[in-house]
């Protein structure tokens, strides 16, 4: 089967600091990868690079078998034309730690915005799609509310619906529950789990080990910009996490 996403030798530096150091990763359609690791290990940078929110210094990103997002310009690797990048982003959904809902739009308008403005679908179709996605995350009855009147968990579920409304092939979750009160984490994970069960391909950056064990096909532990361990949940939680550095991280979380 063709790989949906393949990262080859991704390098991204901020000044002299190598945030992402020579990382490679591949995913088949329907696969779920969970990336864990301490703060500042480059998890979010890697995730954002997949969506071109970060421009990588070297390496390549293959999406559905094509080398995408970058071109050679005067011997240097530069980001492709904005039009091409925008097109790619419509196929990759992103959910943010701080939700980043559009506060001046209602819940349903948030989920319609990308369809209408970017995909140029009609308002009626966009509304139908948005409502069905809100239904999926259990937020359809809040369709006409503004984000400011929602709880954190509800906001994040709307954030997921907004990403899903674009019918993406890949979903990226950047610490989707880190900004939530503990009692609200469950509802968001339940939503993501449901999505996973429906066969969505996803990469999740999280600190939540229990969730990693539950949904992941592949668990990656990242530190200082590189993968310290990579394997199935069984491998990871069975043997790999014996590594003292991973162990100390796990100890710190629990």
């Amino acid at each position: 089967m063709q790989k949906l996403l393949e990262l080859k030798d991704i390098v991204k530096s901020f000044g002299t600091h190598r945030a992402v150091d020579n990382i490679s990763l591949s995913m088949h359609p329907g696969e779920k990868t969970v990336i864990i690791g301490p703060s500042g290990s480059g998890k979010s940078t890697l995730l954002r690079a997949i969506n071109f929110l970060e421009t990588i210094d070297s390496g390549s990103i293959f999406f559905e078998g094509h080398d995408v997002g970058y071109r050679q310009f005067k011997g240097k690797q530069v980001l492709d034309k904005p039009k091409i990048i925008c097109k790619l982003r419509t196929q990759i959904g992103m959910v943010f730690q701080h939700f980043n809902l559009f506060p001046h739009m209602t819940v349903v308008e948030n989920a319609m915005e990308g369809q209408v403005t970017v995909l140029k679908t009609t308002k009626a179709t966009a509304h139908d799609v948005a409502m069905s996605m809100l239904e999926k995350v259990g937020m359809s009855e809040f369709a006409d509310r503004y984000p400011s009147s929602l709880s954190g968990g509800q906001k994040q579920r709307v954030g997921i619906a907004r990403a899903l409304s674009m019918k993406p092939k890949l979903m990226l979750f950047d610490e989707p529950t880190s900004a939530l009160d503990p009692e609200l984490v469950g509802e968001v994970f339940a939503t993501i789990k449901q999505l996973a069960d429906e066969g969505m391909t996803m990469i999740i950056v999280t600190h939540n080990m229990g969730f990693a064990r539950e949904v992941a096909d592949q668990v990656v532990f990242m530190e200082d910009g590189s993968f310290l361990a990579k394997g199935t949940p069984n491998d990871f939680f069975g043997t790999q996490c014996q590594d003292p550095r991973i162990q100390s991280f796990i100890d710190r979380i629990f």
């Binding site: 097109k87 959904g93 980043n100 809902l101 403005t117 907004r162 674009m166």
Partner: peptide, 19 residues
């Protein structure tokens, strides 16, 4: 984050600005 959220759903710079 607003700008990133707009970009993440495929908006151009100008669309993100305007909408």
């Amino acid at each position: 984050g607003q700008r990133e959220a707009a970009e993440a759903i495929g908006m151009s710079d100008w669309q993100a600005m305007r909408r």
